[in-house]
Design a protein around this nucleic acid. Structure first.
Length: 158
DNA sequence: GCCAACGTTGGC
DNA sequence: GCCAACGTTGGC
């Protein structure tokens, strides 16, 4: 299967690109939306490229790049009573929620703001630029990925 | 902090 | 199966 491209959201107060840079790799627990889970569980492969999106930030936008380091496996936090991500419906022998592992790739010098994504030609179809889109794990096209990477790596003149 | 938009739940 | 109520997301 060819490499795929994704956008994954997280609030920096919970986990930021700086945290990922420090950790090198992290598990992406806590996704509790079926559509987002399905993308992770069914479609993500090791080596897929990820736009790391900071939501509820100032400004919100893509703060860096990551890569899928491990395909989906059960989100065991759903089994831990009292945990923030506990869900009694999920059981070890019948998990509902899954997570993947992400590895750090790059931190943009400056976040590519949502406002820029919204006004950049070629990104009109991205879910994140559309009003009311709350999906925290979204597929993006290679063309969209490349445009955002270009925006995140200013050439410094020329 | 506000609130619109969305996904989920549950009564019927 | 419908849909109102609710909780959450996330831009502003």
């Amino acid at each position: 299967m060819p490499k795929r491209y994704w956008l994954m959201k997280c609030e920096p107060s919970a986990y930021s690109i700086d945290d990922l840079a420090r950790d090198g790799e992290t598990c992406w627990e806590g996704v509790r939306n079926f559509q987002a889970r399905n993308f992770m569980r069914n479609d993500m492969r090791v080596g897929d490229e990820v736009l790391f999106y900071a939501s509820n930030a100032a400004p919100p936008g893509v703060s860096g790049l990551a890569r899928i380091a491990r395909t989906a496996y059960p989100d065991h936090f759903a089994w831990e009573a009292g945990h923030k991500y506990f869900d009694a419906r999920s059981k070890p022998d019948a998990p509902i929620w899954y997570m993947v592992d992400l590895e750090f790739v790059e931190r943009f010098a400056e976040t590519v703001p949502l406002s820029v994504l919204k006004t950049t030609q070629g990104l009109e179809a991205m879910k994140v630029t559309q009003k009311g889109s709350r999906l925290s794990v979204q597929p993006v096209t290679r063309a969209e990925y490349d445009i955002v990477v270009r925006l995140g790596r200013p050439t410094g003149g020329g």
